[in-house]
Nucleic acid binder design. Structure first.
Length: 343
DNA sequence: GTCCAGGTTC
DNA sequence: GAACCTGGAC
């Protein structure tokens, strides 16, 4: 039996068919595919539903305020994606008459859409014959063909894998094929302890037959960075700043921040200093991107505050008892929730 | 406490 | 090749 036939047969019995974005609405498919970039299905579902409710159409998104988009994105991570969907919505509104393009080259030009996402969008929306090559699909192909990835650069490997997947993708059922490949990759052909016995490809898979397993390269150790949040409180309100210059959490709102080196000497010195500060939030570690953030905070309670500036300016007084439509990074949300309970 | 899953961009 | 985030598993 052909590779693609095995995949399609599996899909008809086990494939995921009721995900909230599987409705042939290209706008919603696009949003879901962006959310799914380096983010797992179960994480995306609640965010997608909330997003769909608030921005049901491309037009509503194009005219939205970026802070409102970041608010709905808060906690999902990789906030550049939120900026990119806004940019894309505006581009489509202006230069494509509000209609999401059908041409793959046009789609790939849009911010935040690479080759894999472009294939996913067009195959899911229109059943066009474009493949998806995300890490689930890559893992299947690497194992199936026992490709030794240690001798290849990322580019060389991608070229090989694209060639393979383009050979396998069936002419009439690309939508089902792509969905099934991702399902199998994430449910069966998992990174650790794959469930080969229930895999539709195991009869011809080199990894299964010959027990060939090439280990992936180990991850680089993350750098430690110290952060001090200055929690400035006035009644129920906290001072938050929108930061654009710092690369992490770009244009999200958080407490005034000080970075410090975590080199042993400086860190010890800083720790002593911190211990003298007035704080009600215990220090904690937050992993972000390629860094390990050691997050400390100190509290300053003020009796009189400056004039409240509006949302388009960089500083705001955030009332913890009121929801406000701004983007807030996960660890800052966590602190605000703690402050609420201690209020 | 540390590790893991997960595409695009520059 | 490095930067970008978070929740949950261990």
């Amino acid at each position: 039996m052909l590779f693609s036939q095995k995949i399609l047969n599996w899909y008809h019995i086990f494939g995921r068919k009721n995900l909230p974005w599987q409705k042939k609405n290209i706008y919603l498919i696009w949003i879901s595919e962006i959310m799914l970039q380096r983010t797992q299905v179960k994480t995306v579902i609640p965010y997608f539903k909330k997003f769909k409710k608030n921005f049901p159409t491309l037009k509503s998104l194009a005219y939205a305020n970026i802070n409102e988009i970041l608010y709905l994105w808060s906690g999902l991570g990789y906030y550049q994606r939120a900026h990119n969907i806004h940019k894309t919505a505006i581009i489509i509104q202006k230069t494509h008459n509000g209609i999401f393009p059908k041409n793959i080259n046009e789609v790939k030009k849009l911010p935040g859409i690479g080759p894999s996402t472009a294939g996913a969008i067009l195959s899911f929306a229109y059943n066009f014959i474009y493949a998806v090559l995300d890490s689930n699909v890559k893992r299947i192909l690497i194992r199936y063909h026992a490709i030794n990835i240690n001798y290849k650069t990322k580019n060389q490997l991608d070229k090989i894998l694209w060639k393979l997947i383009n050979q396998y993708i069936p002419i009439h059922q690309s939508r089902k094929f792509n969905q099934a490949m991702m399902d199998i990759g994430s449910i069966i052909c998992t990174n650790k302890n794959p469930s080969c016995s229930i895999c539709p490809l195991h009869n011809t898979c080199k990894y299964y037959i010959h027990k060939i397993n090439f280990k992936e390269l180990v991850h680089k150790k993350k750098n430690r960075i110290g952060i001090l949040f200055s929690i400035i409180k006035y009644k129920n309100m906290y001072l938050l700043k929108q930061q654009n210059r710092i690369s992490i959490w770009k244009s999200l709102f958080y407490f005034p921040i000080t970075f410090f080196s975590i080199s042993k000497k400086k860190y010890e010195k800083f720790k002593k200093k911190i211990n003298n500060l007035n704080t009600i939030i215990n220090p904690f570690i937050h992993y972000a991107s390629n860094v390990q953030l050691y997050i400390y905070s100190h509290t300053i309670i003020i009796k009189k505050k400056k004039i409240i500036k509006n949302i388009n300016q960089k500083k705001i007084w955030y009332d913890i008892l009121k929801e406000r439509k701004i983007g807030i990074p996960a660890p800052v949300k966590k602190i605000l929730t703690l402050l609420k309970t201690k209020n």
